[in-house]
Design a protein around this nucleic acid. Sequence first.
DNA 1: GGCTCTTTTCGTCACACTGACGCGAATAAA
DNA 2: TTTATTCGCGTCAGTGTGACGAAAAGAGCC
Lengths: 251, 251
Amino acid sequence: MADDIKDWRIPMVAVAVDLTVLTVRAELLQILMVERGIQPFRGMLALPGGFLESRREDLDAAVARELAEETGLSAEQLHLEQLRTYGAPDRDPRGRVITVCYLALMPNLPLPRAGGDARAARFVPVEHVLGRGAAIAFDHRTIVADAVERARGKLEYTSLGAAFCPPEFTIGELRRVYEIVWGHPLDPRNFHRKITGVPGFLVPTGERTSRDGGRPAALYRRGPAALMHPPILRPANPVPQNVDRRRSRVS
Amino acid sequence: MADDIKDWRIPMVAVAVDLTVLTVRAELLQILMVERGIQPFRGMLALPGGFLESRREDLDAAVARELAEETGLSAEQLHLEQLRTYGAPDRDPRGRVITVCYLALMPNLPLPRAGGDARAARFVPVEHVLGRGAAIAFDHRTIVADAVERARGKLEYTSLGAAFCPPEFTIGELRRVYEIVWGHPLDPRNFHRKITGVPGFLVPTGERTSRDGGRPAALYRRGPAALMHPPILRPANPVPQNVDRRRSRVS
DNA sequence: GGCTCTTTTCGTCACACTGACGCGAATAAA
DNA sequence: TTTATTCGCGTCAGTGTGACGAAAAGAGCC
């Protein structure tokens, strides 16, 4: 037998990695997108990503490299997990490209490389990407939809909501994350009761802040717990609700 | 720019699809494996799978083809979903191979092609594959572990437990599936209450059977519901329990 | 038939969790 | 000082849960 795949009659395909970097800013769930400077889909929005650099590069390493190129952040600084692989034969008009997609969640940080790179990566509301009107390259609209659905589900039974928050945050800020990601208002008092009842989720810092207005709130850090027991489930009715800051009561 | 990926300086890699086909038979959770007839890892157990046949073959089509080759079943006959992609650079000693893995669940059916094919695909208890002693090719032990964990989790909040059952089944048979997959005894009365309380999960056929001994049980078919509300959660303590048929009470 | 053994199926009960909501406390802005 | 806002605590009814009792309905054995 052959000692190397290259000697075989096996179809070789190009493998890309794409990133869906989600964040919450300006009261909206947003996703990092780049405007394509070359054909195909020139001028359209696409996910940041790229091909493997060499035949020896690990998938995770390729993702970490792309992440650093687009955001200046290292993979250890935020939550990163494999989302899914997309491999329809006609998904790239240039030829057969299979893309392994990753999901990243990050707090509302400035992008260090924004503007420095030729490719202008910026955050776009997911609402806009998923809407009819937007021009999205490749099958990236589908990928974004899958990523958002994954993130929404993960908030239910993991502590990943805190991945959208700065290192120290209040329960109210965490609740805003949930409301914005789920697109549904939550009762502040019940959320407070439930989130403080999960062992190992929140570690009080002893500090207080009144940056959100109103009575000063206690500041917390992320605890060691990765899974939430019991989970905080989404309200049953996923109506695209108006998640306004004031009057969060459904009228 | 080039019109085709092949004209670029992009590393091309071999893409494989692998199958983790789970079933419950002989009171054990088992997985379909093949014994490798060629190097590397000759004689060791590996997941059924193979490379893309052409540069135009869809991933899902490749999986369906492999499934038919190994089991004689078509993709419509059982539950099939993408599990994860494994792409460590050194996972295949022959060269760079990325494998897109799929999870399939099937009832306890005879394998039509078993024996007909040169490669002898057979079911092996997952316990054996995950154990220290077994000789498993590539990173397939890790893949099996991920597949089992995915299946265990899916039983909680989807109706996939019925995918392990024949078209008509009793609640007791479904409960045995849960007990064997989770490795934990369940209270028959509580399970009965919960499973019958999920709207759209079970459709009574009106028939009864006493094939399991004891009082005749009603036969059901799978209902239209895909998700279970409320979910049936695994017992908190995932101790590898003795799931004997008799005396399922923890002593 | 009578007895035992098995499994199904229907209830019961205490406990935990949930959503809906009241209310006082503590701050900033007017 | 008044008003608006948010925080954090508490209440209450409804619901799901685990643990368990008990009757029903068959099979096998004497």
